[in-house]
């Protein structure tokens, strides 16, 4: 394996495009090094990008924040302004792994690794976050939801990689929340998860709702029907019940060592309900 620290994003893209063997990008390393240890992959080329400009920075931009692809969970969690604006996104990122893993794991890595159970992804989806992608032919912006395409797969082309993720400005009276279910209290992969982002009007009526669920389908899923079920009212029992039905209908999980189809489906609904009520409170709503 060759280990390379390219001098620029462009050089990195070219290097990755021209590599004939297996290449991996090293951000936090919390997935790729595990794969190396398990002999699941033996890359010929490991490209470390953490030193490149902006990769470890969080900068305010157009009312939102641009978060470098190598910003760790711990670093993000220490940023009060991002946390205040998108608490659900930050709590999702902060749930990845242990304190040790938090020092390294990144939201971009969590996205690119393509796990349907990635804790950072659902709330990024409901926040309508956008990934900035560098490729051999230049830069493009891609909505986060379009990056993962299936377990372990993403839509990036050869030579492409994420340099930052943009969290847009949040309207007034808005709030988000991410919850996951794990068997223990820490150190597990999500068995099911849900993120909810709500915008309210002055009276507390929901005007916009986005709900995403994780670990219940090949990719994180944005459930439009579930969001629609909350719009136009306060999240009372009837609205919540309709939303939960929509969430459950959108689940197409598998039974495996971590959970059953029934369990994943049921808990995804429960988590969406609980996350919606928390997000509603964060948005200033009162039931």
């Amino acid at each position: 394996m060759r280990y390379v620290k390219p001098e620029s994003f462009e050089a990195a893209a070219t290097l990755l495009r021209d590599e004939t063997g297996i290449s991996r990008i090293l951000a936090g390393g919390t997935d790729v090094l595990v794969q190396l240890k398990a002999e699941m992959v033996e890359p010929d080329l490991m490209v470390d990008l953490k030193h490149l400009p902006g990769m470890r920075e969080i900068v305010a931009e157009d009312g939102g924040f641009r978060i470098g692809a190598a910003v760790s969970g711990a670093q993000l969690g220490e940023h009060d302004a991002v946390k205040a604006m998108w608490p659900g996104v930050v709590e999702g990122v902060e749930l990845i792994g242990s304190s040790q893993v938090q020092s390294r794991a990144t939201m971009a890595g969590n996205l690119c690794t393509g796990s349907p159970a990635g804790d950072a992804v659902p709330a990024m989806v409901t926040a309508e976050a956008v990934a900035r992608v560098q490729g051999p032919d230049g830069v493009r912006d891609v909505p986060v939801i379009d990056i993962p395409t299936g377990p372990g797969k993403n839509s990036l082309n050869k030579g492409e990689f994420i340099t930052s993720i943009y969290l847009p400005a949040r309207p007034a009276h808005a709030g988000d929340c991410y919850l996951r279910f794990i068997p223990r209290t820490e150190m597990d992969i999500a068995v099911s998860s849900a993120a909810v982002s709500l915008t309210l009007d002055e009276e507390g009526t929901v005007t916009d709702a986005r709900i995403a669920i994780g670990a219940v389908a090949p990719t994180v899923r944005l459930v439009k029907d579930a969001g629609a079920a909350l719009v136009g009212a306060k999240p009372d029992d009837a609205a919540i019940a309709a939303m939960v039905r929509a969430v459950e209908a959108a689940c197409s999980p598998i039974t495996d060592k971590r959970g059953t189809i029934e369990f994943r489906t049921k808990t995804a609904g429960v988590l969406a309900k609980r996350a919606a009520l928390i997000a509603y409170g964060r948005a200033g709503g009162q039931l």
Binding site: R184, M187, K257
Partner: peptide, 29 residues
């Protein structure tokens, strides 16, 4: 009582040979 178990697949192979899915209690539990 709560989480630890050897999980075998139909093929008779052990599916959770790591601390990630062989879940011993952690401090926060």
């Amino acid at each position: 009582a709560l989480n630890e178990e050897y999980i075998y697949g139909e093929d008779g192979r052990l599916q959770n040979a790591a601390f990630l899915d062989y879940r011993i209690p952690v401090a926060s539990d």
